[in-house]
């Protein structure tokens, strides 16, 4: 069971809107760094940066952040969290770092990302941009920029597909069949 909730067109329009919101919130591109969370946060961050560059004329640095070693839920995850190198600008001191991820769910990945980011330095502020917020937070974490709020049940799965990773753009709501939680 898989329902498309956003098509390619809607996805790219949403990215454009998010890019504008980020620049507006930051009052420009000064000291702005986008940090994509591996895996799908990285191409999303790169697309946001491309949009920003298109209307601001300034390139925005993009980094990638691996949070595998910072997670606190290894026991319950069924994916394989291989450790990958994180790449961020040498110095994020005083910058605004925008964490970029595809789906916001329990909030644990973001908590791990906050730990990971501090290993690189002390940014002035950290913001969070997600394509989909599906609810069910387990931690007091709130996104600053949201592409789409999609109410879900625990038995559902939200999948953001991106050309770079999956060969197509779109967001799908899938029934897992078995409720978890």
């Amino acid at each position: 069971m898989s329902d498309q909730v956003m098509n390619a067109e809607q996805l790219s329009r949403t990215i454009r809107r998010l890019a504008h919101e980020i620049v507006e919130n930051n009052r420009g591109t000064q000291d702005l760094v986008l940090a994509g969370l591996l895996t799908r946060g990285v191409p999303l961050a790169q697309r946001l940066a491309a949009e920003i560059e298109a209307f601001e004329g300034t390139p925005v640095p993009v980094g990638s952040l691996d949070v595998a070693l910072f997670r606190d839920d290894l026991r319950s995850r069924d994916t394989l969290p291989h450790v990958r190198p994180s790449e961020l600008p040498q110095d994020i001191e005083g910058c605004t770092v925008v964490l970029v991820d595809d789906v916001l769910y329990t909030g644990r990945t973001i908590r791990a990302a906050l730990d990971a980011i501090f290993e690189f330095g002390r940014p002035a502020r950290i913001r969070l941009a997600v394509m989909v917020d599906r609810g069910h937070r387990e931690l007091p974490i709130r996104p600053d920029f949201v592409g789409r709020n999609i109410p879900t049940s625990l038995g559902q799965e939200v999948s953001v597909r991106l050309k770079e990773q999956d060969g197509e753009d779109g967001v799908y709501l899938e029934e897992r069949g078995v409720a978890v939680g």
Binding site: G36, L38, T39, V42, P43, Q46, T58, P59, V60, P61, V62, G63, S64, L80, H82, R84, E87, L88, P89, Q90, E164, Q165
Partner: peptide
């Protein structure tokens, strides 16, 4: 368009590690 802001390489697609231990 080599500016100071792009002084580090842009990350490519994350490597897909196929094997698990």
């Amino acid at each position: 368009m080599a500016s100071a802001a792009t002084r580090f390489p842009q990350p490519g697609p994350a490597p897909i590690v196929e094997t698990s231990w």
